[in-house]
Design a protein around this nucleic acid. Sequence first.
DNA 1: ACAATAGGTGACTATATGGTCACCTGTCAA
DNA 2: TTGACAGGTGACCATATAGTCACCTATTGT
Lengths: 110, 110
Amino acid sequence: MTDDDHVFRALADPTRRFLLDLLFQRDGRTLKDLESGLAMTRFGVMKHLRVLEDAGLVVTRRSGREKLHYLNPVPIRLIHDRWIDKYREREVSALLALKADLESKKDKPS
Amino acid sequence: MTDDDHVFRALADPTRRFLLDLLFQRDGRTLKDLESGLAMTRFGVMKHLRVLEDAGLVVTRRSGREKLHYLNPVPIRLIHDRWIDKYREREVSALLALKADLESKKDKPS
DNA sequence: ACAATAGGTGACTATATGGTCACCTGTCAA
DNA sequence: TTGACAGGTGACCATATAGTCACCTATTGT
């Protein structure tokens, strides 16, 4: 439908989210590299990377016979801005900070 | 699969994103209210709201025979924090601010 | 040159998903 | 109390999607 539709459909699959996690840790990976971390054939991973690229969540650069993949955070940020205004952002940040605080105290109680 | 899976699958559908848009504009709406804005039967809308509620993107409160729906921004924020660290956040914010600046100048050229 | 390597395409199957309908439950107002 | 109203359930069908495979192209190193 619209353009952002690609982004959300791309994020709907757990394998694709895991690929983004891998690229979040370290950019510029090749298909072979990414494939090795997944219990799936090369073709499946390639299809997923194609979807991510069409969505603009991953950008690529060719280097010889290799294709390097990079994470593009812009679409993620736009999702955030769509449903979180300045008012809600303050609320949510405070809430999550409080939660993180409680979690840390649970780990090492005084 | 995991818990956040519900969130991303919920966001994958354009109708559900539109429902979030409606709740972003104004909270506390009833099913009848939301249904009236969509070219779909009541049952379709109800299914979508159910998915959003299971994902935690929408929270509800009963009031007599009505059920009021509210937007919960927390899962959205968690998506953001998953793939945007402090470093990338500065980059992206600057980029989007620049883009917004160019757009505004395109609208009313000096 | 040529074998190995990295990536790519189109077709196919099983399953998941969106949407509708017939029918049911609980609540409000005259 | 009884009809209208808001919401809910389970089954059903058409389509979209994930994953695999046979087969193909381009680049590298020896």
